[in-house]
Design a protein around this nucleic acid. Structure first.
Lengths: 205, 205
DNA sequence: CCAAAAATCCACGAAAACAGGGATTGTTGA
DNA sequence: TCAACAATCCCTGTTTTCGTGGATTTTTGG
């Protein structure tokens, strides 16, 4: 059986080493490279084509989310498995939206990670239990801000007034105010200040 | 030479494995246990006394910060090296305040981690460069909110008005307003909304 | 002890947010 | 096709924050 070739992209030497060991032990795959930055990753991909890329989100130069998009744009056939510590809805969603083929948390069982690699390599998608639960929670709990609301809350958090936001979005200040009120209601805030705190806690900014 | 005995406390199997490998390779120490939860850690310590405890902050049951305090209370002679991904002032400060003997980031060079273990074992303190820089930045940059300001910003973030905050603190609403204005100036915010965002980003809430 | 910083209080007008309605277009999924 | 939802806009009055400025009293560190 051909071994699956792997590129690890992670800026933590410890983690990279741990993954390498796991993969070696499993016999199913082999690590052909380790990159500690987004740049190193792209350089590597110019010369070698791993079957699966294990991608961390927090990298020193660019975010794994952006890197994911870039890789998929340049090498559409590459398979990307996101391997991170974050289990926030927004992160999971963004990652998958940007073309990742799977999402596994670093505190997953080791077996699950190998499983995910195989699944992704064979063309499937893989979401770890925790991530799946999160996505369901989102749907249920209704952490569902509309696109417009996301734009608006973002600008509010940056300190713009209704008036200024209206100008940026080419809509009426009254509309912005409506969005603001809806946001306060949706997130159960008392006022704008607590709205921003709550949004920040939930990773919506 | 006696090897330094180590207990790893981390809920990421990958990371634990990586650390174990690093330590093995270094020849200077040996891992005598791995705990994935705070409880497992305390159980382990009842029977065995590792020279150095490598402690992660994010654990499933209790925070590493609290665990640190607990361990130090029960076993004052134990040496604790905090090994985490976070490099926020507040985290570093809290950890050291609760008795940790060292602070190293997971993305540190592997050599640095071994170095830190040795230093901590021999009774010294060790702060990785990144953490040290952070602490200096804090002093320099002036993330210096006064006690009163911290109370006030906390209450603002919870959605209370000047009036309400004044009642809670038994001071005049005008005073609260002064604090608010000072906060906005200090943190370079445009208004309360952005004040809360900035404070949240800096971990001041 | 003394200077610096923190905490307190104030005034006044302008600007912004809040409360609590209502209403009209699109879009879209079942 | 039709109800639900998103996005838009509006009104009225009240409350709160913002900007600019100043002033006094405690703490506190050297």
């Amino acid at each position: 059986m051909e071994k699956i070739t792997i590129l690890i992209v992670d800026d933590h030497p410890i983690v990279a080493e741990g993954i390498r060991k796991l993969i070696q032990d499993s016999q199913a795959a082999q690590v052909i490279g380790v990159a500690g930055t987004g740049k190193a990753c792209l350089d590597f991909l110019r010369w070698e084509k791993p079957d699966v890329i294990l991608l961390d989100i927090s990298l020193p130069d660019i975010s794994g989310i952006d890197l994911c998009k870039t890789i998929k744009a340049k090498y559409p056939s590459s398979r990307i498995l996101s391997l991170t510590t974050f289990n926030e809805r927004s992160t999971v969603v963004n990652m998958m939206k940007n073309g990742a083929d799977g999402y596994v948390l670093k505190n997953s069982e080791t077996g699950e990670i190998i499983e995910a690699i195989k699944e992704v390599h064979s063309g499937g998608k893989y979401l770890c239990d925790a991530a799946e639960t999160l996505l369901k929670e989102e749907a249920a709990n209704g952490l569902l801000l509309t696109n417009r609301e996301k734009e608006v809350i973002q600008l509010i958090a940056e300190g713009f007034t209704n008036q200024q936001i209206a100008e940026k979005l080419f809509i009426s200040p009254l509309t912005v105010d409506s969005h603001r009120k809806n946001l306060i209601t949706k997130l159960n805030a008392r006022n704008t200040a607590s709205l921003i705190r709550i949004a920040s806690e939930k990773g919506l900014l």
